[in-house]
Simulated scan of single mutants.
Amino acid sequence: MSVATPYFDQLFAENDDPWAFRQRWYERRKRAMTLAMLTRPRYASIFEPGCANGELSFELAPRCDRLLCCDTASAAVSLARSRLLGFPHAQVQQNRLPEQWPQGQFDLIVLSELGYYLDADDLRVLIERALAGLTADGQLLACHWRSPIEGCPQTAEQVHARLEQQLGMTRVASLDDPDFLLDLWSRDGTSVARHEGLR
């Protein structure tokens, strides 16, 4: 069974930064590596489900023309909206995924620390909806903490293996860090150098 919304509501009721995104060097380093993994300097449209308090969202916003974020916890949505006030092209919705997947097409979908909260069936549906919501040259980035998390139905390894199997897209970048997995899949498998005519 996927982790239910009240779990996240409780986390944010006790702390506006329950995972210490702002304080921990681990988190700041991971965000920097996530952004560095992206093969394009800018995207027309990015979707970040499970945005929490909007720390990664804040760094994705300058890289796109339109940013849509969502979270299942109402407090997280309020925090992310406040974090993104300086970006009129950014929108934050309260959605429970995969049921409430948004309309529209996205050049980049970012699954950061989300997949292992979903059971196998919900993850399968989420990937199906991500595939349907990606543009013809769209990309999907996934980043997940490797240590087991109590109450989570899946591990980072299971989530990334399922993504690799179900996406049917070229994995254009990958980082096997001792603490987290970070992968970028693209419908257009062209490398950065080749895209710029260097190869």
Rank of each mutant, 00 (worst) to 15 (best):
V3G: 07
A4D: 15
T5E: 14
P6Q: 10
Q10W: 00
A13P: 01
E14W: 00
A20S: 14
A20W: 04
F21C: 10
R24F: 00
R28N: 11
R29K: 14
K30Q: 05
R31S: 04
R31K: 11
A32N: 11
M33G: 01
T34M: 12
L35H: 04
L35E: 03
L35M: 11
M37L: 15
P41C: 06
Y43H: 11
A44I: 01
S45P: 00
S45G: 05
I46F: 08
I46W: 08
G50S: 10
A52G: 05
N53V: 01
N53S: 12
G54H: 02
E55I: 11
F58V: 07
E59M: 12
L60F: 01
P62R: 04
R63H: 02
D71F: 09
T72M: 14
T72E: 12
A76G: 06
S78L: 13
S78H: 11
S78D: 14
L79M: 07
S82K: 14
R83G: 00
F87W: 14
H89G: 09
R96W: 06
P98S: 11
W101H: 04
Q105D: 11
V110D: 08
S112H: 13
L114A: 07
L114E: 04
L118A: 07
A120F: 02
L123Q: 12
I127G: 06
A130R: 01
L131I: 10
Q139T: 01
L140K: 03
H144D: 13
R146A: 08
P148Q: 09
E150K: 14
G151L: 10
C152M: 10
A156Q: 03
E157G: 10
Q158L: 07
Q158Y: 00
V159T: 13
H160N: 12
A161I: 01
L163N: 05
L163Y: 06
Q166M: 13
Q166L: 15
Q166C: 09
M169E: 01
R171M: 15
D179K: 13
D179Y: 11
F180Q: 03
L182K: 02
D183Y: 13
L184P: 09
W185S: 05
S186C: 14
S186M: 07
S186T: 03
G189H: 09
A193H: 11
G197I: 08
